[in-house]
Design a protein around this nucleic acid. Structure first.
Lengths: 236, 236
DNA sequence: CATCTTAAAAATCTCGAGAAAAAATGTTGA
DNA sequence: TCAACATTTTTTCTCGAGATTTTTAAGATG
C-alpha cells in the first residue's frame, strides 16, 4: 500500500503477479489465516500462492511497509507479532490523527462530500441489516472501511490519510483476530448515525468526540479478550 | 525503513545485499543524485550497485514503503516526484505530529533523557563550528537528525515516532534538493539552543512553539527556491 | 499532414537452479 | 548428564536467462 494508492478500496485488478501475491498475503494476515509471529518460508509459500520464489520475496518486501511482515537480517520473514500494548498505541495514534483529519474534512468538505457520506452510510446500514454469515461479514467490513474513508476524504493532507489507512489496516487485524465469529454489536449502527449527523451539521467538536469514543470502544472490546487468543490462527 | 528499526541511525552493517542496495539507493535519492521522477531501469542499475536484477527489484520494493520510489503497474519504477504542495503537506503534518510527540516526551522524559538531549545538542553544536566542506555537511545532517530524534525519544508511541522518521526523511530530501551547496544559516543554532532550554525547563508550550517555527522556517526557505531547481539532479 | 496499423526494440516481469548462511542433528569427551 | 564440536539438513539469499508487456519507430492509408 504505497501512498499514492488513495483509491485502495476499489477492486482494481492486480497488474502483476507480485502485486497479486501481495494482496493475497495481506488478506491472509489481516484475517488471521496466517498467525502472528508465524514463520513465512518462501519455499513453502510459493506453491500456495502460485508464484516463483523471487516474486513471493518481492511481495513480502512490500508487506514490510505495511508493518504486517517483519524480516530479521538473514533469518527470513515472519508475520508481524501482535500485543495489546501495540494495539493501544495504534488506537491512541489513530484517535489523534483521525479526529484531526475529520475536523479538516468537516471544515472543507462541500456538497459532493456530504452526498458521498450519506451514500456510504446508507450502504453500511444496508449491510448491517443482513449481518448473518461470513459472506456478509466481509461486505460489512469493506463498507465500514469505506465509510470511515469518506468521512475524512475532504481532508487535503495526503500524508495524514496515508498514515490513517495504515493504522486502520492494523486495527482491522486486531479486530479480526479477536472478534471474527462474534456478531457485530448493535449500537455500532447508532454510533455511525450520530457521527454522520454531526458531520452534516458541521459540528466538528461533536463529531470528533463521537469518533474518539467509537475508536476507543473497539480497543476496549479487544482488551477484554484473553491474550493467548490473539496469537491463535483463525479458521479460514 | 520498517517500523521496528528504531535505532535507524546507528551504523549497523547491512546483513544482506538487498539491504545494502536499499540503503545505497535511499541515500542517492535523498541526496539528489537520482533526480525526482527519473526512471529506474533495473537492467542499468544492477551494474551500478553490483547486485542481480531480482535483488535490486527487492530493494526498490522496500523503497516504496518510504515513498521514495513509486511503481506503476507493469511500467517499472521511478524516483518519487517532488512538488511544493507535497512539501507543504509534509511540513504541516510534521509540525502536528512532532509537536505532539515533543509534548509527550517532555512530560515523560527522565534524567537520562535530559542527559542524552544535552549530549546530542553538544555534538550538533560542535558540527556547526566547523561547517565547511561537504564532509562536515554530512556530519551536521546526521547530528541534526539525531538531535530531533532524541528530542522525541521519550515519547512512548512507536507509531508516532515511525511516522515522524518517514516525514523527516522526506523533508531532508527537499532540503538537500534545494540547499545542497548553501551554507547553514546562522540562526539555526540559536533555534536549537532555545529548543533545548525549553525542553529542559519542561516548558511544553514554549518548546512546541519553537519547534513549529523551526520546521516552518525550513519550508519557507525551500519555498523561495525556483520550482525547476527541485527537479534537477544534484552533483555527487 | 495527420492518423491508424504494423513491426521492431527495449524494458519489465517471472522462474528455477546454484551459493551462502542458519538451524538441526549426531558425536565425542569430561 | 551435560556441554562443546563437527556434520548434515534445511532455508534463505542470489543470480542469469527466458517469457510478456510496453514503448518506440516506421510505414501505409485517408
Amino acid at each position: 500500500m504505497n501512498i499514492s494508492s488513495a483509491s485502495d478500496g476499489l477492486a482494481i485488478e492486480p497488474k502483476t503477479l507480485a502485486e497479486g501475491a501481495y494482496r493475497a498475503l495481506r488478506r491472509d494476515i489481516i484475517e488471521g489465516r496466517l498467525a502472528p509471529g508465524e514463520k513465512l518460508r518462501v519455499e513453502h509459500l510459493k506453491d500456495n500462492y502460485g508464484v516463483g520464489a523471487g516474486t513471493l520475496r518481492e511481495a513480502l518486501s512490500l508487506l514490510i511497509s505495511d508493518a504486517l511482515v517483519v524480516s530479521q537480517g538473514q533469518r527470513g520473514f515472519r508475520v508481524a507479532p501482535v500485543s495489546l500494548a501495540d494495539f493501544d498505541d495504534i488506537t491512541r495514534t489513530r484517535v489523534m490523527l483521525e479526529c484531526e483529519a475529520l475536523r479538516q474534512s468537516i471544515a472543507i468538505g462541500d456538497d459532493a462530500w456530504e452526498a458521498d457520506l450519506v451514500a456510504a452510510f446508507h450502504r453500511l446500514a444496508r449491510a448491517e441489516e443482513k449481518r448473518i454469515g461470513s459472506e456478509s461479514r466481509e461486505e460489512w467490513e469493506e463498507r465500514n472501511r469505506i465509510f470511515h474513508e469518506v468521512l475524512i476524504s475532504a481532508c487535503p493532507s495526503r500524508w495524514l490519510k496515508h498514515f490513517l489507512s495504515l493504522l486502520y489496516q492494523q486495527a482491522e487485524r486486531y479486530r479480526r483476530l479477536s472478534l471474527y465469529l462474534q456478531p457485530i454489536p448493535r449500537d455500532i449502527h447508532s454510533e455511525h448515525e450520530s457521527l454522520l449527523q454531526a458531520a452534516i451539521r458541521r459540528d466538528a467538536d461533536g463529531a470528533a468526540a463521537i469518533l474518539s469514543e467509537h475508536i476507543l470502544l473497539t480497543f476496549r472490546s479487544v482488551q477484554a479478550i484473553p491474550a493467548e487468543q490473539l496469537n491463535r490462527k483463525n479458521p479460514a
